[in-house]
């Protein structure tokens, strides 16, 4: 059972780390993607384009290696919720936003919003499995 939770967290961690590494190789491309959501001003978007990739790498490493795991979970959940909110608002407004999720150009007009949103929800589910399994295992060991 504990393997399931740990495995789910490692998969989510690898996805985060990969997304971060790809973005931090070209922050300007990520900035362009952020601006297509038409939510943030340029200055905030610049900060996000530099901070989010490193945060994703740190969180990914935390989830994979199990160091600072609770903090990594907290930030991962916050980031995933923020990503879903951004994608949903772009879909509602009919914007042709560039997901920017894993680098490269992933325009909504080509790939739609359903898969990026579903991917984020799946990652949230993976984190939830990790937390629940850990709680259950801890409760059993206490008894």
């Amino acid at each position: 059972m504990s393997y399931l939770g740990r495995g789910a967290e490692i998969l989510v961690g690898l996805a985060f780390a990969w997304a971060g590494v790809v973005k931090l190789m070209d922050p300007s491309a990520f900035l362009a993607a952020i601006l297509t959501y038409e939510v943030f001003g340029h200055a905030f978007a610049v900060v996000a384009s530099l901070l989010v990739p490193y945060l994703e790498v740190c969180v990914g490493a935390g989830l994979v290696f199990g160091t600072l795991k609770q903090g990594s979970r907290l930030i991962a959940i916050a980031l995933l919720i923020a990503f879903v909110v951004l994608l949903v608002q772009a879909a509602i407004r009919g914007l042709d936003a560039d997901c920017g999720c894993f680098g490269g150009s992933e325009m909504a007009s080509e790939s739609g919003y359903a898969w990026p949103i579903a991917r984020d929800v799946l990652m949230l589910a993976g984190l939830a499995i990790g937390i629940v399994v850990e709680r259950v295992s801890r409760d059993k060991s206490v008894r």
């Binding site: 922050p27 901070l51 490193y54 969180v59 935390g62 600072l68 609770q70 903090g71 907290l74 930030i75």
Partner: peptide, 22 residues
């Protein structure tokens, strides 16, 4: 409080890296 403290540490690490990257 532990998750918040760890998250703050991760944020600090990421922030330092992003400032250097800038």
């Amino acid at each position: 409080m532990r998750p918040v403290k760890e998250a703050a540490l991760l944020l600090a690490i990421a922030f330092t890296c992003s400032v250097a990257a800038f």
